[in-house]
Design a binder for these strands. Sequence first.
DNA 1: GCACATGTGTCAGACTCCTGACATGAGCCG
DNA 2: CGGCTCATGTCAGGAGTCTGACACATGTGC
Lengths: 156, 156
Amino acid sequence: MSREGIDLETSLGYLLKEASSALRVAMEEVLRPLGMSVTHYSCLELLAQRPGLSNSQLARGAFVTRQSMNVLLQALERDGYVARAAQPSVGKALPTRLTPRGRRSLLRATAAVRSVELRMVAGLSEADQAAALRILRSMVHALREPPGPADEAARG
Amino acid sequence: MSREGIDLETSLGYLLKEASSALRVAMEEVLRPLGMSVTHYSCLELLAQRPGLSNSQLARGAFVTRQSMNVLLQALERDGYVARAAQPSVGKALPTRLTPRGRRSLLRATAAVRSVELRMVAGLSEADQAAALRILRSMVHALREPPGPADEAARG
DNA sequence: GCACATGTGTCAGACTCCTGACATGAGCCG
DNA sequence: CGGCTCATGTCAGGAGTCTGACACATGTGC
């Protein structure tokens, strides 16, 4: 039956996409009442944990391009959620920080997102959660390496 | 340090998005030489495993909207990769099937995607892979349930 | 000093995908 | 039958994102 092709029922890749899609939908649901998108929230959360991040650093952390993050940052700055340095201290990077308003806005969003994460891991034991962290980290690491070594190992 | 906010280093949600993003990038890399996007490949793979799927069913399987899948299907039909029934057999759904050309195109894509999946699970034991399947399925299931029961259980 | 590669901010254009809306067809129930 | 709900296909419009390009700042090696 599945001689050719990839069995979607047992494919880790497909399941990974399915889980990520479900998570995204769930996050959008709880963030919409707050007038916030996932990227919007990600940006604020990143700034809360690592104050002074530049536009490019935020973009990498939120998995979007510099250009997309730049559009978002301009809106956030205009609305008073973040403040960017007027002039770069080093290089061209402009450090960004949360304003008190941004911090307050993030508090509600974090609570909403945390409830989603709790729902997601509801059926998992502590050991399962630890295993998930380890396994996902391994996948990320393996995917970011160039395909060379794997193929050579397969051939050799 | 992380009294407020969600620690991104130990957040399953963030790691899930990170892994999914890395997988998407890796798949785009190997599919680009074939002139194929991820959604494009997903559509063909779905049709290979479940011939006769309708536009809406394909959209759900590829995690896009009916509208997006419809645009893709029109292009695939125009280029001779798939064939759609001229008239609906039941309801309004138009069953879609792969043409021989579509099947040939899918063969190359499947090989490319399989290499990415192999790279992704390179560092994982058999037990790890089985655990990952079980854990991801649990997450998907939990996220698709309405948040009601979880909150009630937390209160009760 | 000079050339080069890398990282960054920014502008413009185009593209993908989604939201909203409408009409059609099937199933259910009074 | 008539009304309701649900699922599907399709059309139009808009929000978000990406690709391409350019200028500037830093570090490295000659």
